[in-house]
Simulated assay, not measured.
Amino acid sequence: MSTMTTPPRTWLAGVGPAPDSDEVRDDRCWVWSRGADGRYHDPSGRHHETAEGLHARTDLVEVIR
């Protein structure tokens, strides 16, 4: 039996710590990837947000990896 715990894959907006992952998906199914600047960017590169901002602004954030 393993005693390892796995971190949660989803966060509700404004609840708990912001995600700390290279890729996350929001409630609109947009995939956001962390860039060299430390902010998350959508695939088009037109939208960017900090982890805290993305977490606070969307209803749900899911960790992809």
Rank of each mutant, 00 (worst) to 15 (best):
M1E: 08
M1H: 11
S2I: 04
S2Y: 05
T3P: 00
M4E: 15
M4Q: 14
T5C: 05
T5F: 07
T6P: 03
T6A: 12
P7W: 04
P8S: 14
R9D: 13
R9M: 11
R9F: 09
T10H: 08
T10I: 09
T10L: 03
T10E: 15
W11A: 13
W11D: 00
L12E: 13
L12W: 02
A13N: 11
A13L: 03
A13C: 09
A13F: 03
A13T: 13
A13V: 02
V15Y: 05
G16A: 09
G16P: 08
P17F: 06
P17Y: 03
P19D: 05
P19G: 08
P19Y: 09
D20P: 00
S21T: 09
S21C: 11
S21W: 05
S21Y: 05
D22L: 10
V24R: 01
V24A: 03
R25P: 02
D26P: 07
D26G: 05
R28H: 14
R28Y: 09
W30Q: 11
V31S: 02
V31R: 10
V31I: 15
W32F: 02
R34S: 01
R34K: 15
R34P: 00
G35T: 00
G35Y: 01
D37Q: 02
D37N: 06
G38K: 03
G38R: 06
G38S: 12
R39K: 09
Y40R: 01
H41R: 07
H41Y: 12
D42M: 00
P43E: 04
P43V: 02
S44H: 07
S44L: 09
R46A: 14
R46W: 02
H47Y: 12
H47M: 10
H47K: 08
H47D: 08
H47V: 01
E49T: 13
E49M: 14
T50I: 05
A51P: 06
A51Y: 06
E52W: 02
E52M: 03
E52H: 11
G53H: 05
G53T: 04
G53D: 10
L54A: 03
H55F: 10
H55R: 06
H55W: 15
H55V: 04
A56M: 07
A56F: 05
R57Y: 06
R57F: 08
R57D: 13
R57W: 08
R57L: 11
T58Y: 12
T58G: 00
T58W: 05
D59M: 07
D59I: 00
L60K: 12
L60E: 12
L60S: 11
V61F: 03
V61R: 07
E62R: 15
V63T: 14
V63A: 15
V63E: 10
V63L: 13
V63F: 00
I64T: 06
I64N: 02
I64E: 10
I64Q: 11
R65N: 11
R65H: 12
